[in-house]
Amino acid sequence: MVLSGALRVTEAGARVYRRTWRASVISTFLNPVLFLLAMGVGLGSLVDEGGGGADLGIPYLTFLAPGLLAATAMQTGAGDASYPVMAGIKWRKTYHAALATPLDVRSLVIGHIGWVTIRLVFVTVVYAAIMTAFGATSVLEGLASVLPGVLTGVAFAAVVTAYTARLERETGLAALFRFGIVPLFLFSGTFFPVSQLPDTIEWFAFVTPLWHGVSLCRSFALGIDPRVAPWISIAYLIFWVALGTWLSIRLFRRRLVL
């Protein structure tokens, strides 16, 4: 019952996307090209020449690409769980409309996260293809980072959905990106190993879901030994998915069922 309802919500997400896909598809393709070009190729050549390559043991582009895939998944997951959720609750009130049908709050939340998951598969597969085209990884290496990438994105989607469900105003969303997503993007091991950071910040990085996502993607794709066993990282991300989903259901109920 809950699941068949959730599927219908996911389907609605796809239908809405059919209207709005253009802008997002462009950024799905352009984003990896720009980043891999600027950071991977441009900055990477400096890093490799300057001896950074020796430290990493692999070309900087290769080091960067799987981590960037995880970071992009995070941004997609958080993005799709913020403004669209605010719209459903407050601006367009489409969630209110959905709840007047046989659907319930659980279906609504799970179906929404389901749709974001499908989007994440698409975004990460495109990313993997582009990083392969750049010669950063082989096709198989690229594909190997898709699954942990999606998991990372879903973890953020679930948590950000819960966060958004509590917000009265959209300023909270800008703050989330400024003080949450952007710092994570920069300091979770995407661009450099967190061992380069002072120890306290390094410890902080281990707590963030993104660090685990990056670590998983990198070890799945490149066979690099991660600093934390992969099953711990996977379990940790699944924990965030479960927590975020559970919280979202509770908060949606509080917000929408009055």
Partner: peptide, 26 residues
């Protein structure tokens, strides 16, 4: 249900609004 405030999905077409709603009913 016709709520006091219209809560149509204004980004979508008339047809799409109806299809999505029908699908919500399974």
């Amino acid at each position: 249900v016709v709520p006091q405030e219209d809560n149509l999905d204004e980004e979508l077409s008339i047809y799409e609004n109806l299809v999505i709603y029908g699908r919500y009913f399974g």
